[in-house]
Amino acid sequence: MIVVFLLLNLFLGYQWHGLQPSVSIYTEPYADQVANLQRTFAANNITLKASVPLAQPSMFLLRAQTNPRQFLAAAALALDIKPQQASAHLRGSREVKTRAGRFVMNEHGQYRLYIDSRYQPLIPRGRDGAAFVRKWLSKHVIDFGTYETLSWKLSGGRGIASFAEFFGGYPIFSAPLQVYMENDRIIGYSQTALEVVGSLDQRPVIGAASALLALAAFVDKAHINMDNTIQSIRLGYDSRLALGDTWYVTPVWQVDSSRSVFEINAFTAETGVGAS
């Protein structure tokens, strides 16, 4: 018995030793992974100037819906009127108009606020500006508590602040809130408010390094050789397919570059070009 088990252990030990080189490829040091990616991208004139996240969480395929029934409530909040007054200012079924501005809903249930020039709030210059905008939004945007800042592009008193609804700590890029600013004033916003009604098929996502390799394969296959710089990589949910008022949003790695925004499906590694 001792001899049999000794031989078995020798065999298993040999197998385990043979496995180590392939295991070491999969646990390649982070620095080597980034160096490999930079070399791969260089072949297509792409520079990687972003840190590559290491997180590889389990995520869902989300079923989400717009909620046209909360249109009047959203309009009342945006135009600073009482909810019961909103229906009195209705024009057709998708527009509420007051002296303060117009609040419109399109056929996909997305909102747009146009503030009359006399009522456009003045944004204080300096650090207080962002805090002021957030405070104003908390009073004029429905469900603003579920939104977080994505980007803030303001120069010369003009720009766009982008927010996204968050689910489980990740932004839903299909549910953006964009605030438009001109002459240091908020002139309006557009909002896609999605309500997550189901989370399906939980599974681990691919890593950012794998997603970037999929992107490298995509640009190589499509012969995209223009100079480009990758500026940021982040994980979130997105879908650009609205089926009536229903959306299925899938985990994506969003790669922001100087040319465009690329999206890599974090379940399947399929790559496409998202909205800039």
């Binding site: 298993l12 197998q15 385990w16 295991v23 999969y26 691919i206 794998s210 379940f267 590694a269």
Partner: peptide, 16 residues
């Protein structure tokens, strides 16, 4: 050793 071999074998990574 059997356990190490069972759990230590790398799985498929979804790249391209």
């Amino acid at each position: 050793l059997s356990t190490l071999l069972w759990t230590g074998t790398p799985g498929q990574v979804a790249i391209d």
